[in-house]
Design a protein around this nucleic acid. Structure first.
Lengths: 129, 129
DNA sequence: CTTGATCCTGTAGTGGCTACAGAAGTTATA
DNA sequence: TATAACTTCTGTAGCCACTACAGGATCAAG
């Protein structure tokens, strides 16, 4: 059994975040030692590591929670997992596209910006109707 | 002079957001009519439109504020504008790269997911150490 | 016995809005 | 003129997913 600091080190999730996950009911409340300190079993650490990976993959916390539940459920509902992940990947692609549009727009706006300019072309552009 | 609803329509910024910008000191407090309602001059609307464009380009609000100040300053400090924009575009590129890594990882994880699977390969992967 | 690390609870802050509640005023129609 | 519907006002709370305290208790090492 590990204290919260060790659980944090082993999972890569910050101490405050672990307590936050507990408050939010995303992980079950761990046992407490006689001194009231949280004690984490290997399985608890596994859950935290699982959540960490989901978050690193960009899943919203609610999705990470669902995935964890699916992972611990009786039947491995692969279809639900796939649906969740594909929905998420669509979001990711949308964000990529939007950022690429932004990048193009910004590059164009700054193209003619130079320290020698009397008036700034980017500001001019931002001021147009 | 326009009421806040009209200012919102002309700038594309929501009414609540306009009041928020005022609270935060991002735009100056507008005049008030005798009935205490905010009255926006054409110049005020111009500021809101400027901010809207900055936000649409993904600049953080603090940057948008700085750009607005640069735009209203005595000298058009084109170099500062350029620096801000280039720093922002670097951030955008970083985000794009991170999202592309996510996309690749997610695609790989879901590749072998099918409704016919007994155990879900994605969940297995998320459970590994 | 002291020092320093770790842990506890509870609360507040982050960014950038957004959504109320409840009151007051304005405008359009009957 | 009455009334309905719209707009605006202030103030507060919620969103996401943490993160950062404050102020106290406990623990391990020297």
């Amino acid at each position: 059994m590990f204290a919260i600091g060790e659980a944090s080190r082993q999972s890569g999730i910050g101490i405050e975040t672990i307590r936050y996950y507990e408050r939010e009911g995303i992980v079950p409340k761990p046992e407490r030692a006689s001194n009231n300190r949280r004690m984490y079993a290997t399985q608890d650490i596994g859950r935290l590591r699982f959540l960490k990976k989901c978050r690193d993959l960009g899943f919203p916390l609610a999705d990470a929670r669902t995935l964890l539940e699916l992972s611990e459920g009786d039947s491995e509902d692969c279809q639900s997992v796939k649906d969740l992940a594909e929905h998420h990947v669509l979001n990711v692609r949308e964000k990529i596209e939007e950022l690429e549009r932004l990048e193009a727009a910004l590059t164009e706006l700054t193209a003619n910006c130079d320290s020698g300019n009397v008036s700034c072309p980017m500001l001019s552009q931002l001021r147009t109707l």
